[in-house]
Amino acid sequence: MLSKKQARAFFLGGTVVTFLIFIGLTIFSLSKGQDQTNHEGITEQVVRGKVLWEENNCMGCHTILGEGAYYAPELTKVLDRRGEGYVKAVLMSPVPWNPNGRQMVAYGFTKEEADDLIAFFDWIGGIDLNGFDTVVSPLAKDKIERQTKN
């Protein structure tokens, strides 16, 4: 029968080994050669967009890369789906955007701020998501397919 000492060795050994593997995999997957995000494409404008995204807690309603609050639409491929003009209108609207009865906070962003957020969405939209990009926004996928056929 297992002794307490052996049980402790199992705990400590298992933890150390899996943690080291975890660190190794982290270093590997964040290394330059494995980049799937077009990291070079993160311009100052994209960073400003990300700051706005965070300062206003957008993922408190929306999702991005599938992460967020499921109350408002996924925004990973929003530019493909809606087009830049629509997105800008929502961002700059002085009154709460109210599609199908669900209200968005009226942020009333300036044109520059809206451009920053668009740049952020544009960068997000180009990330290789291991296949999720085709599932997350099927409407966007169809739209792209239609455009390429035409």
Binding site: T15, T18, F19, I21, F22, L25, F28, S29, L30, Q34, Q36, T37, L65, G66, E67, I127, D128, L129, N130, G131, F132, V136
Partner: peptide, 15 residues
């Protein structure tokens, strides 16, 4: 610890 990987499937890191 390695189960953390289930958060990394579809966020833009290695498969």
């Amino acid at each position: 610890i390695l189960g953390t990987g289930h958060h990394y499937y579809y966020i833009g890191v290695n498969n």
